[in-house]
């Protein structure tokens, strides 16, 4: 009887651990595969690269709720000539030709059921570094979710920065 209990508990523990490890292995993998393999690092951090600012492409972050993803035409301003024969840029060009936008896969979002109405503008105004919420995107080949935007995480920062922690600040 006691032996059986021991065996069962060991099995149970083993299942839990392996399950957890599997979960970890998968969750630390790369972010979602994008329609065009856009490489943030090349554009922002690479020494011989263009060394762009976040706001160069995500230009409405400081003025609107959404940071916005640049349209293909913005990309093509440079890529018309630069690296025009790389396979990824060719994909981009194809989208541009069709006047379509790549179906980007969203990396950061809040569940609709969370009823959160996030606004980039006041955060940029308060000079919150993009890294604080989005992680080291500038170093990333492929962007993945690095920061867990839980409510406690938001509130923690809000109270540290003396921002409003009224529920109505985010929820409506």
């Amino acid at each position: 009887m006691r032996k059986l209990t021991a065996v069962i508990s060991i099995l149970f523990a083993a299942t839990l651990t392996s399950g957890f490890m599997l979960f970890e292995a998968f969750s630390t993998s790369d972010g979602p595969r994008q329609p065009v393999e856009f490489d943030h690092w090349q554009h922002v951090s690479k020494e011989e690269g263009p060394q762009l600012e976040c706001s160069t492409c995500h230009q409405y972050a400081s003025a609107s709720p959404n940071a916005t993803i640049p349209s293909v035409s913005t990309c093509m301003v440079c890529h018309e000539s630069i690296n025009a024969d790389s396979p990824e840029v060719k994909k981009l060009a194809a989208f541009a030709e069709r006047e379509a936008e790549p179906p980007w896969v969203r990396v950061y979002w809040s569940e609709p059921s969370a009823n959160v109405f996030f606004n980039h503008k006041p955060h940029i105004r308060a000079e919150i570094d993009c890294v604080a919420c989005h992680g080291q995107v500038s170093q990333a080949r492929r962007v993945k979710r690095e920061v867990n935007h839980s409510m406690g995480w938001c509130i923690d920062c809000h109270s540290r920065k003396n921002a409003s922690i009224d529920c109505y600040a985010c929820h409506r």
Binding site: S113, A114, N115, D166, C167, Y168, H171
Partner: peptide
Amino acid sequence: TYHTEEGLNAQVYNR
């Protein structure tokens, strides 16, 4: 449901 500093009577649906 609680009171905001702007005198609104708030209702938070999630909660």
